[in-house]
Computed example of a mutant assay.
Amino acid sequence: MLIRFATLEDAAHLPRIEQSASALYRAIAYLAWLADGQVISEPEHQRLILKGTVWVAEASPGHLVGFLNAEVLNHELHIWELSVQGDWQQQGIGTQLLRSARQYALDTGLDALSLTTFKNVAWCAPAYEKFGFIPVKNPSLHLRDALDAEAIQGLPIEQRVAMRLPITAPAR
Results as ranks from 00 to 15, higher is better:
131 F>P: 01
101 A>I: 12
109 G>M: 08
110 L>C: 09
92 G>N: 04
107 D>A: 13
82 L>N: 02
128 Y>M: 05
135 P>I: 12
75 H>C: 09
89 Q>E: 05
141 L>H: 12
150 E>V: 07
95 T>M: 06
115 L>F: 03
103 Q>I: 02
149 A>Y: 06
147 L>W: 08
114 S>P: 02
89 Q>N: 01
152 I>T: 10
144 R>L: 12
77 L>E: 07
138 N>T: 15
94 G>H: 02
146 A>S: 15
143 L>V: 07
107 D>Q: 14
116 T>L: 02
94 G>Q: 04
96 Q>K: 14
75 H>K: 14
78 H>T: 06
84 V>F: 04
137 K>F: 06
117 T>R: 02
121 V>Y: 00
78 H>S: 08
111 D>L: 08
139 P>Y: 05
91 Q>E: 09
128 Y>H: 11
142 H>Q: 08
127 A>Y: 11
97 L>A: 02
99 R>T: 06
82 L>H: 01
148 D>S: 14
148 D>I: 03
149 A>E: 13
134 I>V: 15
77 L>G: 09
81 E>H: 09
130 K>P: 03
101 A>M: 09
81 E>L: 10
131 F>R: 01
138 N>F: 07
76 E>R: 15
151 A>E: 15
81 E>C: 13
93 I>V: 12
80 W>A: 14
151 A>R: 11
142 H>I: 10
78 H>W: 02
147 L>Y: 08
125 A>L: 14
112 A>H: 04
78 H>N: 06
133 F>L: 14
149 A>M: 06
130 K>Y: 01
80 W>S: 11
149 A>Q: 12
142 H>C: 10
108 T>A: 03
106 L>R: 13
104 Y>L: 15
115 L>S: 01
76 E>P: 08
